[in-house]
């Protein structure tokens, strides 16, 4: 397992719209991301970062080219295979997307229960453990409405990480946060990712986060224009 690359992208092209409105967003992307580490996707607005991330995350159908995620080909895969694959990934969105009717614990629990019912007491323990790691030990039973922006985003991180995903995909997870909270969230994300051996791919504009990256890929107009590794 470990010898398969986390993500392999070959000759990827992607179009939006149809007819005259048809517009290409991704041009001939080839990319391999090995297991582990924090890879950052950069680039100006409209350069295709989100499009690439949603394609890798099996949230959008592949049109041209191939994407293999954890060894699974996405092009032409059926819906249930995609659903299965998504369970091995962790998503962190720009907006926290927490369910407002569920407490912090219950929201994170959703990240576990996607794998089946299981032992409720053990699940609660795992959820509380990760909430504690993210500094939310006194917020277990709070509804999102009663949490600050940074706390909500940390709950979202906990939800993405609780089931030990093999790949974490994050799109500007700190965009809605102040500087201090952003730093905390990304540091926690990196630390947890490292400890659990996850591969993290994150879109960000935040220059202070770049120092934390193992690899920085820059997109422009749907093409990769630079690919550097920090050692």
């Amino acid at each position: 397992m470990a010898d398969i690359d986390a993500i392999q992208v070959q000759d990827l092209n992607h179009f939006f719209g149809a007819g005259d409105a048809r517009k290409q967003a991704i041009f001939d992307i080839n990319l391999t991301i090995e297991r582990g580490g924090l890879t950052i996707l950069m680039g100006p607005s409209g350069s295709g970062k989100t499009t690439l991330l949603t394609l890798i995350g099996a949230l959008r159908d592949v049109q041209f080219g191939n994407i293999r995620v954890l060894g699974r080909e996405l092009n032409g895969a059926d819906q249930s295979a995609l659903v299965q694959l998504r369970r091995r990934l962790g998503f962190i969105f720009q907006a926290h997307n927490l369910h407002e009717s569920l407490t912090a614990t219950q929201n994170v629990m959703m990240g576990l229960q996607v794998h089946g019912p299981g032992n409720a007491a053990k699940q609660r323990a795992a959820v509380h453990h990760i909430l504690d790691l993210l500094g939310l030990s006194d917020r277990w039973d709070y509804l999102p409405g009663n949490l600050s922006g940074g706390q909500k985003q940390r709950v979202a991180v906990a939800r993405a990480l609780v089931s030990n995903p093999e790949i974490i995909l994050a799109d500007e997870p700190t965009a809605a946060l102040d500087k201090a909270s952003s730093q905390t969230v990304v540091e926690l994300l990196k630390a947890l990712g490292q400890r659990r051996g996850a591969t993290t791919v994150m879109v960000t504009h935040d220059p202070r986060i770049l120092e934390l990256a193992d690899r920085i890929i820059t997109l422009e107009d749907g093409r990769i224009v630079s690919d550097q590794r920090n050692n």
Partner: peptide
Amino acid sequence: DHLGEYATFKAMGYG
């Protein structure tokens, strides 16, 4: 009203 939450759950792998 919950389309956003449901979309999130779909992304997480709920069928």
